[in-house]
């Protein structure tokens, strides 16, 4: 009875994206902490997470089981370094990414909350 809400695509995707946002916050914290570490390469959430998630929603990819898709961190070696020590962190773009990430997380918590509220309304019949 309750399953449809917890298994709905929206709810599942929001949960997965929240995991990713939490991990991205970890990566950004590491990047800003190491903004002056020689040779440090910035971390980011692996881009194959988003593509896997998308293809699982569309039902086109190899992974149809959404629960098995987990975000992971990778070193970003593509961003060019503007410094002689090889470090490719730019504090301002990290801060920007962090704020964006926080807003995204806030939004996702709203989505999850909304799903739970819907369920509560269905159970109690009270639209509050």
């Amino acid at each position: 009875m309750v399953d449809p809400i917890f298994n709905s695509d929206n709810y599942q995707i929001a949960r997965k994206l929240m995991d990713a946002a939490m991990l991205r916050q970890d990566a950004i914290a590491s990047n800003i902490a190491n903004a002056e570490t020689p040779g440090y390469k910035r971390l980011d959430v692996a881009s194959d997470f988003a593509t896997q998630l998308r293809s699982s929603v569309e039902g086109t990819g190899a992974t149809t089981d959404m629960a098995s898709i987990t975000p992971s961190l990778v070193k970003d070696t593509n961003t060019r370094s503007t410094r002689p020590d090889g470090n490719n962190v730019e504090t301002d773009s990290e801060l920007l990414a962090m704020n964006k990430n926080t807003v995204e997380y806030d939004y996702l918590t709203e989505v999850v909350s909304y799903n739970l509220k819907q369920l509560r309304m269905a159970v109690s019949g009270n639209p509050s």
Binding site: M18, I32, A33, E94, L95, T102, Y105, T109
Partner: peptide, 28 residues
């Protein structure tokens, strides 16, 4: 440089805290 780096790290703490608070509000 040191105080700007300090500020940048502080804002990371602020945002991380905001995320944690939001997570605690789920379902309210």
């Amino acid at each position: 440089t040191a105080s700007r780096a300090y500020e940048a790290n502080l804002s990371v703490v602020k945002n991380a805290k905001q995320m944690a608070m939001k997570a605690l509000e789920i379902g309210k």
